[in-house]
């Protein structure tokens, strides 16, 4: 019982929660503005992980810098995919349901491609590396620098983005697009530009988070899917398109996971995550969260 009350566990929950919050934020941006269901999202986290790994292993570059490189790389990948595959889809006259279903299948294909190209390039063997592993002492709690960095960066970045969206003109356009696409076009928002921005930012956030996650977790070509699932749980819990709600939900899931595993066993971690995922989808599917339309 003691361990449950320790600050150590709480800080672990907060670290995981802040990572989940950031990962979900990117997914939410893409879904909210374009209704694209990016189930390749976790694979971007994986790419970030590899960028961090190689930069550190080959050139001893700190994960803090690698994080930016990873963000830029996945952001560029996002731009390429946006122009190559999605812009045309989005500007067509397809119904939202069609776009959602197609995007899911397309991203599924992208996910498989990314995973297997990575496996071809770097083999499927999981990798780990030690960086930022000296301990930081805060009162009775000691955590590694890397986890401290993950907490600070994820929290800081998430809060920055939420405020950015609240306060900047571009942020306002993004929120307008999330609310109502047609109306946004009518009031003169450059929808294409805003979408590109949201798409690239979403991709970049995943890569960036991945570089941080890779310091503490095993990196392998197939590590991504659990993050996709987690991100979906979080944005559904917090409300699709509701960015601030997603941050809270990320924290909530971090707490559920950390304390759930502490109370049971590490073997049950996946069952716990998928269990929450199923419950959330079954009990609070789309209809309960979105404003009901009167039909």
């Amino acid at each position: 019982m003691d361990i449950l009350l320790s600050g150590q566990l709480l800080i672990a929950a907060l670290i995981i929660g802040s990572i989940y919050g950031l990962v979900a934020l990117g997914l939410n941006l893409i879904y909210g503005t374009m209704r694209l269901l990016n189930i390749a999202y976790g694979d971007l986290v994986m790419i970030g992980g590899y960028v961090g790994y190689w930069l550190f292993t080959l050139a001893a570059i700190s994960p803090i810098i690698a994080m930016l490189v990873a963000g830029v790389l996945t952001g560029l990948l996002g731009a390429a995919l946006y122009f190559g595959l999605f812009r045309r889809q989005l500007s067509g006259r397809q119904s939202i349901e069609r776009i959602e279903a197609n995007s899911l299948l397309i991203f599924f294909g992208i996910s498989i491609i990314i995973q297997n190209v990575t496996a071809l390039a770097f083999s499927a063997t999981p990798r780990t590396y030690n960086a930022l592993d000296s301990l930081v002492q805060i009162g009775e709690i000691s955590i590694t620098q890397s986890r401290m960095a993950a907490l600070l960066v994820c929290l800081g970045l998430s809060i920055f983005i939420v405020f950015f969206l609240r306060l900047s003109p571009l942020g306002l356009s993004i929120r307008a697009l999330i609310q109502n696409r047609t109306a946004s076009q009518i009031v003169g928002i450059d929808v294409n530009r805003v979408q590109l921005f949201a798409f690239v930012t979403g991709f970049a956030l995943a890569g960036l988070a991945g570089a941080l996650i890779g310091v503490t977790e095993q990196i392998s070509p197939f590590m991504g899917f659990p993050f996709t699932i987690v991100a979906f749980v979080v944005i559904i819990l917090g409300g699709l398109g509701n960015l601030a709600g997603g941050l809270l939900a990320g924290m909530l899931l971090g707490i559920i996971e950390t304390y759930g595993v502490a109370l049971t066993s590490a073997n049950l971690r996946s069952i716990l995550i998928y269990g929450v995922f199923i419950l959330v989808l079954v009990l609070r599917p789309e209809g309960l969260l979105q404003k009901r339309r009167m039909t």
Binding site: L37, I39, I278
Partner: peptide, 20 residues
């Protein structure tokens, strides 16, 4: 009862859940 894309990702989660 879950419709559209939510059903799609739910089925995936369900299979993974059963696996674990």
């Amino acid at each position: 009862r879950v419709r559209g894309p939510y059903f799609v990702i739910l089925t995936f989660g369900l299979a993974e859940f059963a696996k674990y």
